[in-house]
């Protein structure tokens, strides 16, 4: 399965990665190689094999429903580029 440069452009946009137009075809080739590897794995007969989302057999660990966190807003907002009145500020998002 070969990716087109348009598809690479779209993937980059979805991931919010800025790409030079000049690199698109090179990346399309690289990514297509990865997909080819996956294609090869797809050719293995997996009839009767349970799909596995995670390695290891242990299930999800659960915690009791209790509030254990305190308000640490000041410390957590200290590294933010901008904060005011308790809010994190980001460039205006227009709906």
């Amino acid at each position: 399965m070969a990716l087109t440069t348009d598809e690479v452009r779209s993937i980059a946009h979805l991931a919010r990665i800025g790409l030079d137009e000049a690199r698109l075809s090179e990346l399309a080739t690289d990514l297509s190689t990865v997909l080819e590897l996956v294609e090869q794995m797809n050719s293995v007969d997996t009839t009767g094999v349970e799909p596995m989302a995670h390695p290891g057999s242990s299930g999800l660990r659960l915690r009791a429903d209790a509030v254990t966190e305190e308000n640490r807003r000041e410390a957590l907002q200290a590294p933010a580029p901008s904060a005011e009145d308790g809010y994190f500020l980001v460039p205006r998002v227009i709906e």
Partner: peptide, 11 residues
């Protein structure tokens, strides 16, 4: 969106 003149506040 309406509390800050030139930014969006995130809670």
């Amino acid at each position: 969106h309406d509390q800050f003149s030139d930014a969006t506040g995130i809670d």
